[in-house]
Amino acid sequence: MRPFLLLVFILTVFFNYASADNTLPSVSFTRILKGVSNIQDGTVDLTHNTGYVISGPLGVAPALQVHSTAVKLHKRLKSTSDLLRAFPTATFSPPQSLQVALKMLSLQVAVRKSLKTTAAKADAFGELSPIVQATLLQLRHDTAVFGQELVPRLGRFERLLAPALIKMIDGYFKDALAAFGG
């Protein structure tokens, strides 16, 4: 009787797998906009957590929390870049492009604040500075990839403004990296 149950179980699993829709989920503009919002939320969380970092042994736990938050932000940037890559149309419609551009403006402000807060805490990070520097380099790379995926999707007017925003954000990264010796 047991071999029969095993066979039924295997066939059930096989048929469920075979009948499942294994196609990639459709990528909607709403998911992309939510991804950009998630990046902003992650940036705000990073700023908040960085504020708790202090020098010495008591600062290790908050510093590790900052690193954990940065890893989550990395994943958000990567997943949103992947969504942009999978978006079915070449560009956003004019209203969609404007929505993204407005989100990007508020994201730019959040990134500036976060990186200034991080740079101001360079002494508090102390011996963990190489980890912070490596994390900043990774987030800078992720941000550049995100920008490369986003800019071609924007409308003509927004596409003209985007390089200035990206250059500003890159400048914030340069300043933060300089505070950590990079």
Rank of each mutant, 00 (worst) to 15 (best):
Ser79Ile: 04
Ser129Arg: 15
Glu158Cys: 06
Ser68Phe: 10
Gly59Glu: 13
Pro163Ile: 14
Asp175Ala: 07
Ala144Phe: 04
Lys103Ala: 09
Lys116Gln: 09
Asp142Phe: 02
Leu160Met: 14
Ala110Glu: 03
Lys78Pro: 02
His67Lys: 10
Ser26Gln: 12
Leu139Met: 04
Gln133Phe: 05
Asp82Leu: 07
Ala90Glu: 14
Asn22Ala: 09
Leu102Val: 13
Ile166Thr: 14
Lys174Cys: 00
Ile166Tyr: 12
Leu139Thr: 10
Arg140Pro: 00
Gln99Cys: 00
Ser93Asp: 06
Pro94Glu: 09
Leu58Ser: 13
Asp142Thr: 12
Pro25Ile: 04
Val53His: 05
Gly35Pro: 09
Leu33His: 08
Ser106Cys: 01
Ser68His: 11
Lys103Glu: 11
Leu5Trp: 11
Pro57Trp: 06
Val13Pro: 04
Pro3Ile: 06
Ser55Met: 13
Ser97Thr: 08
Gln65Gly: 02
Ser19Ala: 09
Leu150Thr: 06
Thr143Asn: 11
Leu11Thr: 06
Val53Asp: 03
Val60Tyr: 05
Thr117Arg: 03
Ala164Ile: 13
Asp142Pro: 02
Lys116Gly: 00
Ala86Ser: 10
Leu165Trp: 04
Gly181Pro: 06
Asp41Met: 02
Leu46His: 07
Ser93Tyr: 03
Met104Val: 09
Ile32Gln: 05
Leu11Tyr: 08
Val151Arg: 13
Thr135Ala: 12
Asp82Ala: 15
Ser81Lys: 01
Ser26Asp: 15
Leu58Val: 13
Ile131His: 02
Phe125Tyr: 11
Thr43Ile: 01
Pro25Val: 11
Leu105Glu: 07
Val111Met: 02
Phe87Val: 07
Thr118Gln: 06
Phe125His: 05
Leu77Gln: 11
Ala90Leu: 13
Leu102Arg: 12
Phe125Met: 12
Phe173Ala: 10
Val44Asp: 02
Leu154Ile: 03
